[in-house]
Nucleic acid binder design. Structure first.
Length: 586
RNA sequence: GCGCCCGUAGCUCAGUGGACAGAGCAUCGGCCUUCUAAGCCGAGGGUCGCAGGUUCGACCCCUGCCGGGCGCACCA
């Protein structure tokens, strides 16, 4: 449902009409649903429409159309801000507002400014949003970029919806992958010094491993060749993971994504949290021993089978870390946990839900958002990647080539659980074909307009001081309507954890702006322009021109400037939620 | 074999159970003496994978099938 102030106003007017009709005995129901108020599919049907009559037709035991008429009559009688109320089959209620109603939207935007659209639905609930969390075994790639953009946008969106959000990166700095990293670096190190060695079977082959070994040789005071292989390996592992985490932080910072906390998996071991968490479960008989391994009774919580947490060889599994980690999350006081995972881990979700339930929390305490793969294209042709051979396009490569803004916008143009095609050529293009520029250009265009206006002595006034009744053109009303639906959009996007809706909204709003801008002038032509025009030939192609010939009074200029100011505010608010900049100049 | 996700215009994708299913790209044809043409306008294009069901009403919910992706470890 939309929560824009106009939509709310109409919804409550309908509710009132329902209750009044009920009192007068023309409706029978004891309870009515909250009326859904939306834009009708076609503008000519009215400003707003509601399907409430069809929803209650059944309980009223009357045809929807008849119910709609009852509501319409009541609305018409009691509601002064509606210019027209009509009914359309099969039972839609269409209303047209008095034009001045829409102007309150502009006041609302001016009053709330960069908080326009924000809500309190989160009620200050504390949310831990964990994302990216890539192993520090190499640089971040495209897929991580998508997760990073989504996480950042979600954090901003949820904060705007009244949640208290912390962003966290879980560093997988323990276990097999780290051992492989250590071995790989050590092998390159030995190689560098002409020592014979065999490169580990599943090691990391990328050139960055050689770079790490070289940097280590340069910057470390101890010579690794003087150490025994075990110590040398450990040195390599620690150095490499430290360096890679540092590089990952840098990449993310350049991408415009920062975290409140970086949580080390290794710290779960050293602090004894793993044993503590497992002990907690054991006391409630949710952990048992069999075949020399320790198991978690996840099957009690709708997982398909029990899972090993400590192997026969005494090592903990990844799940053990996750149990301890998520236990710690809720113990730190977070009421809602959101994890953003690659879709290839979806099979892991029931297990993790079982963990949460085992600690006594409900299903809705943990929400896992899955992110599908990114297919990288260049001018329509697939860019081949092979992680095995260490050949993949890094996030850094993409940011360098197309910029952080374009990259983020592209990552947020699709629902997260569908595959995404990312065309580097398109993302770089500086034209209307490139969606990110299309939206940013709308913002910059307005900034430029305001600069010119100021030079010419037109200052954007406050909404209250502007002659807004001059705003009657369809393109103007359409803009205001679109602005009015922004709060509802944010609420729905936050509830669904779907920032891509904001992307689509902005493209639409920018489109409306560009159309308006093309059809109408805001500032009067300069004196010399006017002279040119009058000395020019008489207009032959009046018909063919899309431009609206209109008298541009000072009032109209002032009113349009105020309207466009609010448009600019909303574009900016939207872009900032996506983590994309709103440039003043392009 | 079991589980999850996806099948919507030539391509990439939107579409909280509501009206004649939308956008961008691509194709074709137009618009710069205008406050930013990084812009605008017009045209063509569809069995919403298939078949049932629920509903006053289904692209949306349920069941089955077909096609694609991904999972099903004492790996992470």
């Amino acid at each position: 449902m939309s929560a824009g102030i106009i939509q709310e106003q109409v919804a409550s007017a309908i509710t009132n009409a329902l209750l009044q009709a009920q009192q007068r005995g023309s409706l029978q129901s004891a309870h009515f649903p909250q009326p859904v108020v939306d834009f009708p599919k076609r503008e000519e049907w009215g400003d707003l429409s509601s399907s409430v009559a069809m929803l209650i037709a059944k309980q009223e035991k009357r045809p929807p159309l008849e119910v709609a008429h009852v509501i319409a009559d009541q609305l018409q009688a009691s509601c002064t801000f509606l210019e027209k109320v009509s009914v359309a089959p099969p039972g839609f209620l269409n209303v047209t507002l008095r034009p001045d109603c829409w102007l309150s939207v502009l006041e609302e935007i001016e009053r709330t400014g960069d908080r326009y659209g924000h809500s309190k639905i989160g009620q200050g609930q504390r949310v831990l949003l964990e994302f990216v969390s890539a192993n520090p075994t190499g640089p971040l790639h495209m897929g991580h970029g998508r997760g990073a953009a989504l996480g950042e946008a979600l954090a901003r969106l949820l904060r705007a919806a009244g949640y208290e959000v912390d962003k966290e990166y879980y560093i997988n700095d323990a276990g097999r992958q780290m051992k492989l990293l250590a071995d790989s670096v050590y092998a390159r190190y030995l190689e560098m010094h002409g020592r014979e060695c065999s490169f580990p079977e599943d090691g990391y082959h990328g050139d960055y491993i050689k770079t790490l070994a070289q940097a280590m040789d340069r910057e470390k005071s101890i010579h690794l060749l003087t150490l025994n292989p075990e110590d040398a390996r450990r040195e390599c592992g620690q150095w490499a993971s430290h360096e890679l985490v540092r590089a990952i932080k840098e990449d993310l910072a350049q991408f415009g994504v920062e975290f409140e906390t970086w949580y080390s998996e290794a710290s779960l071991f050293s602090s004894g949290r793993i044993q503590a968490a497992l002990h907690d479960l054991e006391q409630r008989d949710l952990v048992f021993t069999q075949d020399g391994a320790t198991w978690f009774r996840s099957s009690r919580f709708q997982d398909e089978k029990d899972r090993v947490v400590c192997k026969q060889d005494g090592d903990y599994t990844y799940l053990a870390s996750d149990i301890a980690y998520h236990f710690d999350k809720v113990r730190r006081g977070y009421e809602w946990l959101i994890n953003i995972w690659g879709a290839d881990h979806h099979g892991y979700v029931p297990r993790m839900q079982a963990v949460i339930k085992a600690f006594g929390y409900g299903d809705d305490c943990l929400r896992v958002v899955l992110v599908q793969m990114v297919r990288l294209l260049r001018g329509g042709k697939k860019v081949e990647m092979s992680k095995r051979a260490g050949e993949f396009v890094t996030l850094q490569d993409v940011v360098d080539e197309v910029g952080a803004d374009a990259a983020k916008f592209f990552f947020l143009m699709r629902r997260s659980d569908t595959h995404l095609e990312f065309d580097l050529e398109l993302a770089k293009k500086q034209s209307a074909e490139n969606p990110v520029y299309y939206v940013q250009y709308a913002h910059a265009r307005l900034a430029s307009l305001f600069r010119t206006a100021q030079e010419r002595g037109f200052f954007v006034s406050s909404v209250g001081g502007a002659p807004l009744s001059a705003l009657v053109q369809p393109e103007e009303i359409r803009l205001i309507k679109q602005l009015s639906s922004f709060p509802g959009l944010l609420e729905a996007s936050a509830k669904a954890l779907e920032p891509h809706r904001i992307t689509f909204y902005l493209l639409e709003l920018a489109g409306f702006l560009h159309v308006f801008y093309y059809k109408h002038r805001v500032l009067p032509p300069r004196v010399d322009d006017a002279k040119e025009e009058s000395s020019g030939e008489p207009d032959h192609d009046e018909e063919s021109s899309a431009l609206v010939r209109e008298v541009l009074s000072r009032e109209l200029t002032m009113a349009r400037l105020v309207l466009l100011k609010q448009v600019q505010t909303v574009i900016k608010n939207g872009l900032l939620l996506l983590g994309v900049s709103a440039p003043e100049k392009m």
